[in-house]
Amino acid sequence: MSRPVAIDVSHLGKTYDKVRAVEDLSFQVYTGEIFGLLGPNGAGKSTTLRILITLLNPTSGSARIFGLDSVKDADRVRQTIGYVPQERAIDRFLTGREHLELLADLYHLSADDAAKRIPQLLKLVELEQQADRPAKTYSGGMKRKLDIACGLLPDPKILFLDEPTLGLDVQSRLRIWDHVRAMRERGITVVMTTNYLDEADRLCDRIAIIDGGRIKALGAPNELKVGLGGDLVSLTVREHDRVEKLAAAIRDLPAIRAVATTTNGLDIRVDSPEKALPAILDAANRLTCQLEFIDYHRPRLDDVFIAHTGRSIKDDQPRAEDS
């Protein structure tokens, strides 16, 4: 059974002044999921997002939002989506409430609807107390909450978030994550860009890893990790001369995927650590091979990112801007 598709991106390309920002991008976002575009700065995430929210026209391919073309039906697309830009897209001189009032008029809400919805949103993002203060007095986290309230004002079917937690402290990040999850509970499809691995891992149902304008991997964070080929067990062996013999013995054990020798031991990829670990220890005992150190970890999204792009996302420090 296939899930209902909210966004269908097909062979999307965007070239600025001969520079290819995005190339042959194809993916689908299902309704009701949190979909993440993960990649370093300049990877093409923001370009993709801007095409989806109709602010940029693609140079090739197409993007359909609930069947509506992002270029031809731009006006109708704009009525079904909400957008939360990167931080600071706020008018310092307006109060929080005035932001929402302005947007209510731009979405053509009636005065009654606006009067009903604005207090609800302020309550939802916990800004009731500060609603009538100018936004220049807001903290980073409060601005972000106002951003989100603005994005939710049109009661969108899809909400787009551009780097929702960039530059926020830990507590504010966790609150924003809660808000994003709450949106999913309400049936809103969420599409977000991020260059934080833990955010993609813990918040998103599915992610697309983008690097150099192309999709390098696509799937649920767990699938991607499992796809790497099992969990990793690293052994440090005291007697180096026995490593080869031990490797040979372990290779034949059940639930073992691959064994590689390292400078002072073995790296073993295992399917199920519950079965593999006792068997590995048993083999070591049988060969009277003393183990100095055992490390076991599940593949992290870092490992996935490195495996698909050949580099760590941290090579590129997060900055406030992204093109």
Binding site: L55, A89, I90, D91, L103, L106
Partner: peptide
Amino acid sequence: ENGFLERLMSTPI
């Protein structure tokens, strides 16, 4: 420069 224009232009105005 601060992205407010983008926010305005993403609405159906």
